[in-house]
Nucleic acid binder design. Structure first.
Lengths: 250, 250
DNA sequence: TCCCAGGATGTACAACGTACACCCGGTCGG
DNA sequence: CCGACCGGGTGTACGTTGTACATCCTGGGA
């Protein structure tokens, strides 16, 4: 199959005087390593979307046979895990300017940006149990900041979860925008899109409901959380940490 | 195929005196409606997990041919949309006790519980664009409460997003618990699970890092958000809403 | 009574993940 | 210098998935 002499990208250079320096990697196929597979997969998902991530498609992208991939990744699941960790590696966890709270804010924002940069993958970053080294370090840094801020271990992990589930969930919510229009009238019958008088509040704010798109929307929620964090910390500080049953703890 | 006389659940009752009242639906297969298909699918996913949702599996569950389903749902995607809306229908949006903030808290909690009750499905409740009537009403109620609370449309939708992306993301994060153990040593080489001295903070709080499981963990984050909400509202109230460029808005 | 429309069925196909057997070229012991 | 070895790429093949298509069956209206 696919017997054209010059496969895919223009690689039909003349074969004359091909005795050039044999020390550099000229065309794409270097040895094909695990890292190269994962990078290519991430790249593919970024530009074509998740369902386009097919072992066959990835293989052709790498100009290699599908089964060759299995010499570098156990199966597709592991590949996705590796992709997620690669993405998490883009989070900048090294900022040290300002107090712990500003560092925390910067950290979570960077996390959000990494997810947004690969939002197709982010939709899958979910119930993944397998956490890679980058993920670990990210968690480490966050918890470290919270401890430095004065949180006790139990609450620190609570806050950590609140921040990261928010950031993770933010991607998935996707754009709720088209809400009233959809494809026009095509499936209006399936979801009997309620008339405007049944949803007055939505109609009132509908111009602002354009989903995740509005710039600063993520930051708004983040500030809500951080305000809560500060409040929590202040109230814990003025109560001398003896009887904590005033809160929500059971 | 599957020619056993009594299929699946113990339905091999004796066939004597089977002239009973012909007005009730006895065994499973009533006419097979759209609603029945969706309910069965939700049930199947709840107990077997998402990848078990197969048109064929669902069909056998309903004791029907696979292709019969397509007379009631256009394709699997629409089926999932309908399942999500069915789940959202379980959210109680009718509570009216207390002020708007307590109502809001109850509402979001109910949303969270619905997601938790079908956490397999919740992992997919994500970038879904198609919103069903139940989803619409849920949004409507939430925005309504926020407007009642005094938020302007723009901020109301911001808060709405913060609350719901948090709740949605909370499911997906899943249990990070096994972190250090995993299957013991099986794939320790793949992710070179960093030694404890590299992750001191995590080791310090690790007993509390059991993921989503800790009861009250969701509520903790919710309270953080609601505290932020109140703070936002208070500060908006004392500044007479004229120049809003003091915040994060561009 | 006949007819027909709508729902259930069976067959079939393309695409997917991946197990298995093969093969090839570079590396190292003799 | 040669032959065995072995890590990695290839081709083939199988089971499973979603679903298009043609067919058949059944129950209600003329």
């Amino acid at each position: 199959m696919n017997d054209q002499p010059g496969t895919s990208r223009g690689r039909s250079e003349p074969t004359t005087w091909v005795d050039v320096d044999p020390s550099k990697d000229y065309t794409r196929p270097p040895p094909l390593s695990r890292a190269r597979v994962v990078r290519a997969a991430l790249c593919l998902v970024d530009e074509k979307g998740l369902p386009a991530l097919t072992m066959r498609a990835l293989a052709t992208e790498l100009e290699v046979s599908p089964m060759a991939l299995y010499n570098h990744v156990r199966d597709k699941d592991e590949l996705v895990d590796l992709m997620v960790d690669l993405m998490l590696g883009e989070v900048d966890i090294s900022a040290t300017e300002g107090d712990w709270l500003t560092q925390l804010r910067v950290l979570v924002r960077s996390f959000h940006q990494a997810l947004a940069a690969h939002h197709h993958l982010a939709r899958v970053y979910s119930g993944r149990v397998r956490i890679g080294p980058h993920g670990l370090l990210l968690i480490e840094r966050t918890i470290g900041l919270l401890l430095e801020g004065g949180f006790l271990p139990a609450e620190a992990s609570d806050v950590f979860f609140a921040l990261f589930t928010y950031a993770a969930g933010f991607q998935q919510m996707g754009r709720i925008a088209p809400l009233r229009e959809g494809r026009p009238g095509e499936e209006t019958e399936y979801y009997p899109l309620l008339p405007p008088e049944r949803i007055p509040a939505i109609t009132a704010v509908s111009p602002h409901l354009d989903g995740v798109r509005r710039p600063g929307r993520f930051d708004y929620g983040l500030e809500l959380l951080l305000a809560g964090v500060q409040a929590k910390l202040a109230q814990a500080k003025e109560a001398p940490a003896s009887h904590r049953e005033s809160g929500h703890h059971a």
